[in-house]
């Protein structure tokens, strides 16, 4: 898989408390591809995303970003993070900072220390941030504080922040678990549409199997830290789902 954006081989991670979160995971994602990752809580989905962008250092195996080892040095992991946007279940917006500045914080990896300290953004950066806000249709809220926005609006700001990095990949860690089903679709529609338009690859950890099937080109299912299923949404049968979620799985 030489054209893969991310490629892991034999990836494993054991937390200091002895929990084996990932075990010999072979995973890849091609440019522009949207991959849904499903699995029960604790199956390793979040850990996988954090290993990909270097927030967590794996204990075994390798993670390659565009053919280069992410974890070769901490500095290189940081360089990789600049090209990888990430959104979270709890949005992770900085409180008391305006929506526009929250989006501009997406540039934090690119600006130098002094420009960062004084929130001194160039005109191009401001234009980029405003463009990102308008693409998620939240431009008119640019001057507000995050807590004045609804959950769905906050997640759209977080998407704008990730886009402001001009990333090659967007990692979404349960991006809609804190939102109602209707808002969840609005948020995922925005994220997936923009990724498709810009050719950004996207990995989305989702709890909702129907959303995972609907938005993903490909589905990867985790069970107890291992890849249990990998294939097209149509290949994800009820038997497989019962294996993943247990006997009490009913279509959700």
């Amino acid at each position: 898989m030489s054209d893969a954006v991310f490629q892991t081989t034999g990836l494993g991670l054991t937390y200091p408390d002895g929990t084996r979160a990932l075990d010999s995971v072979d995973f890849h994602i091609r440019p522009g591809e949207v991959v849904s990752v499903i699995g029960r809580s604790g199956a390793g989905k979040s850990t996988l995303l954090r290993c990909l962008n270097g927030l967590l250092v794996p204990t075994d195996g390798s993670v390659q970003f565009r053919g280069k080892e992410v974890h070769s040095t901490p500095e290189h992991a940081r360089r990789v993070r600049r090209s990888v946007g990430m959104i979270f279940q709890s949005f992770g917006l900085v409180p008391r900072v305006s929506v526009l500045n929250n989006v501009l914080i997406g540039r934090a990896g690119q600006v130098g220390l002094w420009r960062g300290l004084f929130y001194h953004w160039t005109d191009e950066e401001k234009q980029l941030a405003l463009r990102c806000l308008s693409r998620v249709e939240i431009l008119e809220q640019w001057h507000k504080r995050p807590r004045e926005l609804s959950g769905g609006q906050q997640q759209r700001v977080a998407i704008a922040r990730a886009l402001c990095q001009q990333p090659a990949v967007l990692l979404a860690d349960e991006p809609v678990s804190a939102l109602d089903p209707a808002t969840a679709r609005v948020v995922l529609d925005h994220a997936v549409r923009i990724c498709r338009e810009d050719g950004i690859a996207m990995i989305a950890n989702l709890h909702s199997v129907s959303l995972a099937k609907e938005y993903g080109d490909r589905i990867v299912a985790f069970r107890q830290g291992r890849v249990f299923f990998e294939g097209l949404p149509a290949e994800l049968t009820d038997e497989v789902l019962r294996e993943i979620y247990g006997e009490h799985y009913a279509d959700f």
């Binding site: 962008n53 927030l55 940081r78 360089r79 990789v80 993070r81 600049r82 090209s83 990888v84 946007g85 990430m86 979270f88 709890s90 949005f91 992770g92 917006l93 900085v94 409180p95 900072v97 914080i105 997406g106 540039r107 934090a108 990896g109 690119q110 600006v111 220390l113 960062g116 300290l117 977080a158 922040r161 990095q165 990692l171």
Partner: peptide
């Protein structure tokens, strides 16, 4: 709250700017 701190770290910011922004 560590959530914003992790989000700023995920942008590839240096440690100084993670503290400053997050």
């Amino acid at each position: 709250d560590l959530a914003p701190v992790e989000a700023v770290r995920a942008t590839g910011a240096s440690n100084n700017l993670i503290v400053w922004f997050g």
